[in-house]
Design a protein around this nucleic acid. Sequence first.
RNA 1: GCCGGUGUAGCUCAAUAGGCAGAGCAGCUGACUUGUAAUCAGCAGGUUGGCGGUUCGAGUCCGCCCGCCGGCUCCA
Length: 630
Amino acid sequence: MPVYRRSSGETAEAEAARAQDVLRLWGEEEGAIAAKVNGIPVDLNAFVPDGAVVEPILASTEEGLDILRHSASHLMAQAIKRLYPGTKLGIGPAVEDGFYYDVDPPQSLTEDDLQKIEGEMGRIVKEALPVERLELPRDEVISIFKERGETYKLELIEEIEDPFISLYRQGEFIDLCRGPHVPNTSYIRHFKLLSLAGAYWRGDERNPMLVRVYGTAFPTAESLRSYLDRLEEAKRRDHRKLGRELDLFSIQPEGPGFPFFHPKGMTIVNVLLDFWRKEHVKRGYMEVRTPLILEQSLWIRSGHWDHYRENMYFTEIDGRPFAIKPMNCPGSILIYKSQLRSYRDLPLRMAELGTVHRHERSGVLHGLMRVRCFTQDDAHLYVTEDQIKDEILGIMDLMHHIYGDVFGFPYRVELSTRPENAMGELSQWEMAESALKEALDESGTPYKLNPGDGAFYGPKIDFHLEDCIGRSWQCGTIQLDFQMPEKFDVTYVAADGSHRRPVMLHRTVLGSIERFLGILIEHYAGAFPYWLAPVQVRILPVKDDFLPYARDVEAVLKDWGVRTEVDLREEKLSRKIRDAQLQKVPYMLVVGAKEAEDRKVSVRERAKGDLGEMSLEGLEDLLNQEFNPF
RNA sequence: GCCGGUGUAGCUCAAUAGGCAGAGCAGCUGACUUGUAAUCAGCAGGUUGGCGGUUCGAGUCCGCCCGCCGGCUCCA
């Protein structure tokens, strides 16, 4: 009699059994949607070999959720094929928050069709169709999909080398699939179709475009509900909406991808940059500024002409060709080269809040997150080879300070290596890549490897911040560059009098100021911490009679360096409070007869509410307790 | 750039079936003189994104262009 084992070590004997039967021996079949046999996920009705370890996969685990969603994508594809016969199928995987299926329907689909498809999915769920795995010889599989006109599937099969190929069938629906899946369609209860979008077949823009139908599925109604609530929350936090409501910035039809910063948005940016400058001075950087437009020949020499031309804007001055800078490095190099540099000058840390223009394709623009003109908090470090590691560690420390200590953002690190269109020698790339790795290892930073994602002039370490709804944004980057110094013949005089070539480090911390502001808006849902709030305190006179006192208080606060305004309107106090709350002003000061008499203020904090009356000194103490990274 | 959707007052949204472009908020004017999340009244506000077409008649139907939204590809 075969023996089956549990991960805990327990064993049981039974006749040749399927995974579900083995789980039942231990009372573990409840809630399982698939099983793991010797660590490999399989269907519940898969036969288990003698001696195998069998564990349940629950829908509530990450692995189980993936299976549930993958099955949901099959369910959706089946519904689509029922409603729109002749639809050809692309691929339909589970993704981060749900699943999608790329389909090629005979007619175009609209949002209204989502409801219909959902309805049909509901019917298939009720049918409780068993989901069966088939393993058939290649030829047979090919003829099945030929017969069904599934040309995309045939293309996928061509790449599978195994003599046998697995398929999954539920009712009349058959799909090429590795599995595993839920045992029958009734397991998929809590799902929702979300959106439609175009997507190129196999992600290549030369291929035909299919319709990607997005949906999500969860094990319980509550978890589905909370996910949908989270989507709503994300909408509420959308920086484009808050940017308008809080009057921070706008993007006008006259400048697609070119944001306008309004006074309040600019205040936030300036506070942020004041902090940034202080921090950089502290860490031995000097600041420079280079021109926005430079002669085309410079860009040819730098390699941008060959590697980055499609993203650049060009112009002409006095009949000579010029380019608008898409990056700040060539300008920085010109400053470096403006005089002879000694090894004593290195490491030379040259920072620049550099405004760059890049031509982004119209479809990718997105509020402040993806624009055509942005300011990078750039820096170029000129270092000797044996300074590389320490300088990288120094930059990583700065990143950690700003992301972690100041903003409390979780972040991820990725190392990107040599891309296809790379410039320069392979050996230099290897040297550069291993220098970055060494720094990462020494600092003990966990990172993900992204082969082929480096810049054309060098490998890079990217820092991805995670925002409130789990999206990640690339902000900081450290790029190691042996190419530019070479191209521009950049040198320093070594101790022995010889001319040596420095290595160049390019780096940003915030990345793009625009994008960073967008992230901050969403992260704080517009309720900026006190130190960043465009208006820190709003003074609310109870009635006009107390305007003079309100002005007095305002003058005192301004003197303390607090960003203050007075609500001058002839409105009721409750109205003024409401408006200040909606503007997410951190502190409101109510001033009326009592306050004016005693030179006091009644303080209301936007989240805590009424804090009661206090003297101006008491207020000063209170404000001084607020977080301040300076 | 590509696919799909969408565009009405500063904002949010109405306008049966192709038949007089409207409301709330915001703004302005006036009244009210206000104590912890919306005082009342009046006024003003529009080339319905643009251009062309169909029609007796177009916000509505068709075509092209532009912007925006969601994706794809690409990226700070």
